[in-house]
């Protein structure tokens, strides 16, 4: 298209008197490579409009999203309630039969055994603690 025709269109364009068709002629014209230098400034303006048209929203359409979110919430609360219920149910203390002894002597012997067991375990623990003292000694050498 001739330059003076384009210039004429630009004049009209700036006055807001061009039709969409005219404006499309301008937009196409300015996508071309060799544009006279005095018109170069319009190239970027129209170039920008062409680019800006391509931008899209990245978000999904809402109603779908909301609905699924609500379902997740309901499902999660059901799971939670079930879990708490089973937990409580399993942890309720049951009446257990602990066994009884018939004579005080028998009971004494068993109690003695049990206490002996506990005492042994405590002592075996103490052996390991003695290692810690070694560390303490070394530490004193270093840090004084």
């Amino acid at each position: 298209m001739e330059i003076n025709k384009i210039e004429e269109l630009i004049e009209k364009y700036l006055e807001g008197n061009t039709s969409l068709q005219d404006e499309n002629i301008l937009k196409t014209y300015f996508t071309a490579q060799n544009i006279p230098i005095h018109l170069n400034q319009y190239k970027d303006v129209f170039g920008y409009y062409n680019e800006a048209k391509k931008e899209t929203s990245k978000e999904n359409i809402l109603p779908k999203k909301q609905k699924s979110k609500r379902w997740i919430g309901i499902a999660a609360s059901i799971v939670l309630v079930t879990m708490i219920a089973t937990y409580l149910y399993q942890n309720t203390p049951k009446e257990e039969d602990l066994g009884t002894f018939d004579t005080p002597e028998e009971a004494f012997v068993e109690t003695h055994k049990a206490l002996q067991l506990v005492a042994n375990n405590i002592n075996s623990g103490m052996e390991n603690v003695s290692y810690l003292e070694e560390y303490e000694k070394t530490k004193k050498v270093i840090f004084k």
Binding site: S57, K58, E59, I61, L62, P63, Q66
Partner: peptide
């Protein structure tokens, strides 16, 4: 802009 779009669509 995303928020506005969602709001209007809702």
């Amino acid at each position: 802009a995303e928020d506005a779009t969602q709001e209007v669509l809702l």
